[in-house]
Write a protein that binds this DNA or RNA. Structure first.
Lengths: 139, 139
DNA sequence: TAGCATCTTTGGCAAGATACTAATGATTCA
DNA sequence: TGAATCATTAGTATCTTGCCAAAGATGCTA
C-alpha cells in the first residue's frame, strides 16, 4: 500500500485554499500550482474532482478561481482522500471470494484504522500548524 | 492507497503454514497454492521474500517444502506486509521537500495508525478464527 | 456584443508497477 | 544417478500513474 502523489497534491491544494479562507477573492489554478509546486496541468484535474465531491467551488472568467465550499474545520484529510481516490484505503480484495474471512477481517481493521486517522485531521488544525511556522510562507 | 493482491497472497500463504503448524512435515508450494488458490509460479517469489525476512524456512529435495520459522503468535500481519512490500504503508512523499511539514504530519498519523493495526493482528488469532469456521476447509 | 481570462473536458502518452509465465539452475534424498 | 523439490532470473501483457495539451464552455468587462 502506497500513498500517491496525487493524494498529496490534493491535500496541499486544499491547504492552500484553507489558508486563503475566508478571503473572498478566489485562488487561480496557477496561483495554487505555484504556491504548492504542483504541475498546473495535473492540478486542474484534481481540483475538478474536489469540486465534484463538494469540497471546493469555482468561478469562471475574469476574477475566477477556486475557494473552499465549507470551512476548513469541516474538511478532513479523509474527505480529500475519498474525493480523489474513492477511499482512504482501497481494498478490492475484500470482494474476492477466495480470500478467507479471517484475513479479510485483518484487512478491514487496517482499513478502519487508516480511515479513522484520516478523518481525525481537519484543515483548521493543519492551517494552525502552518501558521505557527510562518517562515515557510515568505520563500 | 490500495492493498495489493501480492500482500493478500502473502498473508494467505502464511495462514496456511500457520494452520499446518507445528506439524513437522513441510508444505510444498503446490499444496499452499492449491489450498489458497494462488498461482504457484507467483507464490514461489512471495515465499522467497518471506524466507529472506526470516518469517518462514524451507527445505529442498524430496520431502521438501515450507514451514514457519516462528510460532504463529510471533508473526503479525505487519511483519508479512513489511516482508513483501517494504512497509505497511509506503509514503515516498514524506521525503519530498516540497510537501509542507503539517501535511507530512497528517500522513504520518495515518501511516502509524495502519502500522499499529497491522502489528496488532498475529497469526495465532487468525488461525483461531479460521478454526472456528471449519466448514471452509472441507470444500 | 466582442474579446479575453478563466475554468472544464477530453484525449493522449511515456514510464513504471502489477501479476503473472516460464525456463533453467541448485539442492536434497533415496 | 535421478527424481523431487526449492531458487533464480528473464520476460511480458495489462494496468496505473503522473503528467501535457488542445479545444470547449462560461463569465466579466469594455
Amino acid at each position: 500500500m502506497k500513498a500517491s502523489v496525487k493524494s498529496d497534491y490534493a491535500c496541499r491544494a486544499v491547504e492552500a485554499l484553507a489558508l486563503h479562507h475566508p478571503n473572498t477573492r478566489p485562488l487561480r489554478i496557477e496561483e495554487i500550482a505555484h504556491r504548492e509546486a504542483i504541475p498546473a496541468n495535473y492540478l486542474v484535474q484534481i481540483l475538478i474532482e474536489l469540486k465534484s465531491k463538494g469540497l471546493i467551488q469555482s468561478r469562471r472568467g475574469k476574477a475566477g478561481g477556486y475557494a473552499l465550499a465549507k470551512t476548513p474545520r469541516e474538511i478532513t484529510v479523509g474527505d480529500v482522500l475519498r474525493a480523489v481516490q474513492g477511499d482512504v484505503l482501497e481494498m478490492p480484495l475484500l470482494l474476492e471470494a477466495r480470500c478467507p474471512e479471517e484475513i479479510k477481517r485483518a484487512w478491514r481493521r487496517i482499513k478502519q484504522a487508516a480511515e479513522q486517522a484520516a478523518d481525525d485531521v481537519n484543515f483548521e488544525e493543519i492551517c494552525a500548524e502552518a501558521k505557527s511556522r510562518p517562515e515557510m510562507y515568505y520563500i
